[in-house]
Amino acid sequence: MLHQSDRLIETPSQTAGPYVHIGCIPSFAGLKDVYPEDLGRSPIEPGARGTRITITGSVYDGTGWAMRDAMIESWQADAEGRFAGQSGADPLVSGFCRFAADKDSGEFILRTIKPGAVAGRDGMVFAPHIALWIVARGINIGLSTRIYFEDEDNSADPLLARIEQRPRVQTLMATATGAGTYRFDIRLQGEGETVFLDL
């Protein structure tokens, strides 16, 4: 008999369901009097260093329909590439934000600062990016992806380099639509399917 590992197994995921907002963004559900404010309303506080940006997009299902019930969380570094809690990180950047697709239009908006490049192990450097985690009814385990920026130098990014079908890199690129404004659409399935990550 093989040696028995004492490693446990992660608790299995279940869908967040259509009412995820009650627990995560209660004011969206119409529930305004339990907490003083929703958690993760903004990833930055006034005075945070860096360039202000606004990212707008939608989450599309396999039929091309912009989902009205998706909930997204974002996690990012500060303008110098440091995460909250790391030494030297900008104290005005929590780096965490929660936002929902609009119940009428399906559009989401993330207002933040552009993150800096992030140093990884073994000298790896990741181009500026924002991690996203997407949950909704019908999504049985949260989907991870990243927003990169088309106006940054992404040529040496180790994650993007792993994408074999080069046209798919474009699914992770926020496209500039104006001064400090970007578009980033997420396609769960089918043509133009977003690259989802298992990191």
Partner: peptide
Amino acid sequence: SVTRAPRL
């Protein structure tokens, strides 16, 4: 889940 699960 049929229209919301990635195929790739």
